[in-house]
C-alpha cells in the first residue's frame, strides 16, 4: 500500500498565523416574513494549530450554531452569517460551495452529539468511511477499505475488519461514536469540531471517548474546538476556554486561569455549578433564571438580569475588554471583581 500524504501542500503552515481566525461573526435566523434574530453576535476568537479550545455555555448560547457556521452547514435560506471566518488565511465566507466541500471533512471535520442518528442507517460503517476517503483522495476501493480498517483500529474498535461490513445498528452507542470519530478523522483534518460528543453516552463510556479524542488530537497535532456545557470535561480537555452567553463571547482565557479566577460572573457561575466531591454542601449552586431568547435580549449587558454583581452601569451594552494579561472579557467590572473559581 503506497503511503498517502495527508499534508496538503496548499496549506501555508505559517506558524505565526492562527489556523482559524473568527472575527465579528454574527449569525442570523429568519424569524418571520421580514424579521430575523441574531443568535450569534460578533463572535471573535482564534484557534492556533494543534490548540484545543473549549466553547462553553448553556443551551441556547450559540455554541453549536457557531460550530456549524465554521463548516458552512447552517440551514440554507433560514440562516445567514456576517463577519469573517479565516481558515489558513483564506476567508471561508467568500468560498464557493465546491471550495467549501473540499474543506469539509478534509481540513475541518465535525462530530456530533447523537451517535445513534448521526450515521446513515442503511450504509455499512466501511462504506461511510471509504466514501469520505474517496471524496477527498484519489484512492481505489481496495485501498480505501484498507485505510478504513486502519482508521477503525486507531479509534480502538475491536475486530475492525469485521466491523467495516456491519451497519450502525449492530454497534453500541460508544462504538458508534468511535466510528463517528474515525470517519471525522479519516482524512487527518487540521481542525476538529466536537459538538457535545459525549453527552448522549453512558458516564463510563464518556471518559473513554474523551481520552480517545485527546490522544488522537495530540498525536496528530490536530486543532480542536470542543463544544460542551460541561466545564468539568472542557477543563480536562482544553488549553483555552471560550465562554459564550446569549450569542456573545463573554470570556476567553487560558483554562487554568479561568479555573483559578474567572473574570466574568457567568464563568464563575458555571464553575460553581459543576458538581465536586469535596464540597459537601446540601445543594449544588445554580445560576438563577434562564438564557434570554434571541427576540428578547436585554439592551445592555445580556447577563445583567441574572448577575449577582449587577449594579449601575451594567444596563449599558458591554464591549470586549482585551486585558494586558491577554485575557478577554465582556464585563466593565472585570478589574473590580474577585470571582470564585473552581480552585478557590
Amino acid at each position: 500500500m503506497k503511503p498517502v500524504s495527508y499534508r496538503d501542500p496548499s496549506l501555508t503552515d505559517n506558524a505565526a498565523q492562527p489556523l482559524l481566525s473568527v472575527s465579528d461573526l454574527s449569525v442570523y435566523f429568519r424569524a418571520g416574513r421580514k424579521s430575523s434574530n441574531r443568535v450569534v453576535d460578533n463572535v471573535t476568537f482564534d484557534v492556533a494549530r494543534g490548540e484545543t479550545v473549549g466553547l462553553v455555555g448553556e443551551s441556547g448560547s450559540g455554541k453549536t450554531v457557531t460550530g456549524l457556521s465554521l463548516l458552512g452547514l447552517l440551514p440554507e435560506g433560514i440562516a445567514w452569517t456576517e463577519g469573517q471566518i479565516g481558515f489558513d488565511g483564506k476567508d471561508i465566507g467568500k468560498m464557493s460551495e465546491s471550495e467549501m466541500r473540499r474543506l469539509r471533512g478534509r481540513h475541518i471535520s465535525m462530530i456530533f452529539q447523537e451517535p445513534m442518528t448521526a450515521l446513515d442507517p442503511v450504509f455499512t460503517i466501511g462504506e461511510q468511511l471509504t466514501e469520505t476517503l474517496r471524496t477527498h483522495f484519489p484512492m481505489s476501493k481496495r485501498e480505501a477499505r484498507e485505510r478504513a480498517i486502519t482508521a477503525l483500529e486507531d479509534v480502538g474498535i475491536p475486530l475492525p475488519h469485521k466491523r467495516v461490513e456491519e451497519y450502525p445498528h449492530h454497534l453500541s452507542g460508544g462504538m458508534r461514536q468511535r466510528a463517528m470519530i474515525a470517519i471525522a478523522l479519516a482524512c487527518e483534518p487540521d481542525l476538529l469540531i466536537a459538538d457535545e460528543p459525549t453527552t448522549a453516552l453512558d458516564v463510563t463510556i464518556q471518559a473513554q471517548i474523551i481520552d480517545l479524542i485527546m490522544k488522537i488530537v495530540s498525536d496528530r497535532n490536530t486543532a480542536l474546538i470542543f463544544i460542551s456545557h460541561n466545564l468539568g470535561v472542557v477543563s480536562q480537555v482544553c488549553d483555552r476556554m471560550i465562554t459564550m452567553y446569549a450569542g456573545q463571547v463573554v470570556e476567553d482565557s487560558v483554562t487554568d486561569e479561568v479555573l483559578e479566577q474567572p473574570l466574568h460572573p457567568y464563568s464563575s457561575g458555571l464553575l460553581a455549578s459543576v458538581p465536586r466531591k469535596s464540597v459537601s454542601s446540601s445543594r449544588l449552586p445554580s445560576i438563577p433564571g434562564r438564557v434570554p431568547s434571541p427576540d428578547a435580549m436585554p439592551p445592555g449587558c445580556r447577563f445583567e438580569p441574572r448577575c449577582t454583581f449587577a449594579q449601575a452601569g451594567c444596563e449599558a451594552a458591554q464591549v470586549l475588554h482585551r486585558r494586558a494579561d491577554g485575557r478577554v472579557v465582556r464585563c466593565h467590572r472585570h478589574d473590580q471583581l474577585t470571582l470564585k473559581g473552581a480552585l478557590t
Partner: peptide, 22 residues
C-alpha cells in the same frame, strides 16, 4: 432533514451524492 445527512455534508459530500446515493 435527518441528522445523518448533516454528517454526510460535514464529510464533504456534494448535495447530489447525498440525494442520489444516500
Amino acid at each position: 432533514s435527518s441528522p445523518y445527512v448533516r454528517t454526510l455534508r460535514a464529510k464533504g459530500l456534494s448535495r447530489q451524492a447525498v440525494l442520489f446515493r444516500h
